[in-house]
């Protein structure tokens, strides 16, 4: 299914953000993406906070996948 495909990609995208292969993403990791992605520091912070459901400062693969999955779900219905 397209959703399963997205979830597979989510893992690869997570690895791109998890620069030190810690198994989670911090705000510092997001800030490092600044030069690589066409997003402002503010936007990267917004993305982080949107995905960080528990607001504990760490993005787990599950939270990352959930965020991407919801986005795909939204796009399906749009």
């Amino acid at each position: 299914s397209p959703q399963a495909e997205v979830m597979g990609k989510a893992k690869e995208l997570f690895v791109l953000c998890d620069k030190e292969s810690k198994g989670f993403i911090t705000k510092r990791d997001m800030q490092r993406l600044q030069g690589e992605l066409p997003l402002s520091p503010e936007q990267l912070e917004e993305v982080f906070e949107s995905l960080d459901r528990r607001s504990n400062g760490f993005l787990t693969p599950v939270e990352f996948n959930t965020g991407l999955g919801e986005l795909v779900g939204l796009e399906d219905t749009a």
């Binding site: 990609k9 995208l13 791109l16 066409p38 936007q43 906070e49 986005l71």
Partner: peptide, 29 residues
């Protein structure tokens, strides 16, 4: 869209983030 959370990124920003990551991934070996 009322689903957008206060203080959170809009769908557009999130989409931009993921799309940019995707193209970064496909754009590099």
């Amino acid at each position: 869209d009322p689903n957008i959370k206060a203080g959170a990124a809009s769908e557009g920003v999130l989409a931009n983030f993921f799309n940019s990551l995707l193209s970064k991934k496909t754009g590099s070996p």
